[in-house]
Amino acid sequence: MLNCIYRLIAPRVFEPVQVDVDVSEGVLVRPTYLSICNADVRYYQGARSSEVLAKKLPMALIHEAVGTVVKDATGFFSRGTRVVMIPNAPFEQSEYRAENYLRSSKFCGSGFDGFMQELVLLPASRVVAVPDAIQNEVAAFTELVSVAAHAVNRFESIAHGQRDCVGVWGDGNLGFIVSLILKSRYPDMHVCVFGRNEYKLNDFTFVDEMRLTYDVPTECVFDHAFECCGGDGSAAAINQIIDTVKPEATVSLLGVSENPVPINTRMVLEKGLRLFGSSRSGLADFKSVVELYEQHPEVPRYLESLVGGVFPVQSIADISKAFEADLRKSSGKTIMKWNM
């Protein structure tokens, strides 16, 4: 059957392309709500290097989406089932490495087509049903929640057992979600969030403490820490963390930076710190998020506060309108109600 894919062919230029799809295998999903990620915006703006853009484009953007099943050749999902789509596509298994770290894995919206399509064909292992109680706008960015959950899942297996006080650097979407998952899983943990914007910190009503980044303790108070800043803020955040965590703390790095980040390795060595990076997620992380939604119904309710503009999309002009609005937003997630 023919399927229409909406590809970015150059910065700020989208083009529809008809492709033939074999629907005799896999799960055919019609996207309904798509969430714009910062990585999508960097491609849209042309903010990546010319070498990267030449290698990646043309390409359909978006790796955060929810949709409904149109057809399932495997017979596992019923027609009309609401599902989130997993953008990570592994081609092998490893006893020692998660699917999202295998160099052979591909990722929708980063090297091959994302979910800006009329229909998306995926293996059954790349589709997870969403509870009915979850709003479509929240379900759309479940992938981002799964990234935060993946980092917390790894923290659970890497960090030592003293977890009384944990610091989270970053007042954006990722810092919000990481803090929310920590408080849900560790209700007795003292979670302190650091940010640059007081108005953003005011939304972190579920944590124990909020501070601006110039109000950092001078003594070592945190058992562990999460860095969720990225970009130009990474270096300052990581070095503040190094200064304020206790010896043998674990530091989780999640912020994405285009340029190398200088850090105080002398103090990393002196304190015996463990720094680990987390990127993307896999099937197990998506399943853990669905379980979190079901076991802690307050979590999706808090996530609703991250929903920013919701833009009905029926044309390429509407797509561009949503991306331009995302560029101007101060916080939250921009959602496209996909009617293409």
Rank of each mutant, 00 (worst) to 15 (best):
100 N>W: 13
101 Y>E: 13
104 S>R: 05
107 F>H: 06
108 C>R: 15
109 G>Q: 01
110 S>T: 10
111 G>E: 00
115 F>S: 06
115 F>Q: 03
120 V>Q: 06
121 L>Q: 14
121 L>G: 12
122 L>I: 12
124 A>Y: 13
133 A>E: 13
134 I>N: 11
134 I>P: 10
137 E>D: 07
137 E>T: 13
140 A>E: 11
142 T>A: 13
145 V>C: 06
145 V>S: 01
149 A>H: 15
151 A>L: 07
151 A>R: 14
154 R>L: 13
159 A>E: 06
162 Q>H: 11
163 R>F: 03
166 V>R: 02
166 V>K: 02
168 V>C: 03
171 D>E: 04
174 L>K: 01
181 I>D: 14
184 S>V: 08
188 D>L: 02
188 D>H: 02
189 M>A: 02
191 V>C: 06
195 G>Y: 09
198 E>G: 05
199 Y>A: 05
199 Y>W: 03
199 Y>D: 08
201 L>Y: 04
203 D>I: 01
207 V>I: 14
209 E>H: 11
210 M>S: 11
211 R>N: 05
212 L>K: 15
214 Y>W: 08
215 D>M: 14
215 D>R: 14
215 D>I: 05
217 P>L: 07
218 T>L: 10
220 C>L: 00
220 C>W: 00
221 V>H: 00
221 V>C: 01
223 D>A: 00
225 A>E: 09
228 C>L: 14
229 C>P: 10
230 G>E: 05
231 G>C: 10
234 S>W: 05
236 A>T: 05
236 A>K: 04
237 A>C: 03
237 A>S: 04
